[in-house]
Amino acid sequence: MSMIFGVPLAVLSGQLLIGIINGAFYALLSLGLAVIFGLLKIINFAHGAMYMLGAMTTVLMFDYLGVNYWVALFLAPLVVGVFGVVIEYFLLRRIAGQDHIYSLLLTFGVALIIQGVLINWFGVSGLRYTMPDMFKGGVNLGFMFMPYYRAWVIVAALLVCFGTWFVIEKTKLGSYLRAGTEDSQLMQGFGINVPLLISLTYGFGVALAAFAGVLAAPIYSVTPVMGSSTLIVVFAVVVIGGMGSIGGAIITGILMGVIEGLTKTFYPPASSAVIFLVMVLVLMFRPSGLFGKEA
């Protein structure tokens, strides 16, 4: 068997694959944060909770209603997205004119509530979600074994990321969004319903998180606390990449996943810390972030 730096190729590529998959989740989550940040200028501290809600909804819909994976893939983000719109409409909107710090704290409080309530209902040990039959098994690529589901996660995440990029950069709706980022008052003056746009944007951003949650349900353990630790990593990813560009958020997310995977191969003890260390380095040498324009 071929070795690379004393590590078998199969192990290395296996970890790389896991890295790319984690990176796909980071990309989806930081993409949602970036979309929300663009128009609302807030960091959504409830993003991890929304990701968790997506996964929990998938499991619960299957357990109680028999809703299968494919339906959940659309339904869970929709449910969570509507929930997000409700939160935006009843809570975030009421403090829209205030310092952005307050909306950040508000979403933090919302996250505490969601997570705390679900812990009471379901405990912190994981719920199980059975993978759809068609995803069982995998294919041997010669140098490594590729489970079908993991391949699907990468494809689906990339498709959604690309779709979001396309909508925002290339369509009329996206042009409204971008214009709103620049000057929402002027937009309102042109007769565009900005409050509605803001609600939908927040809903869409958290729906992206929920979509990541659905993808995660079959491979990660689904618990009420799965969101909070992931979110902190995603924050580090966002600091590294900057939220200036959609593409930047995607690339940074995947890159950080890969770096994490490589660290797990060569020096496992540092694997949970490596992204934070990269963040420290970026802050030292390129404080505005890899793709960032803002200070």
């Binding site: 704290l105 508000l106 409080g109 919302v110 505490l112 509530i113 997570q115 705390g116 309530v117 009471n120």
Partner: peptide
Amino acid sequence: DPILGGIF
């Protein structure tokens, strides 16, 4: 936790 979140 949820109550603290509510107070928040």
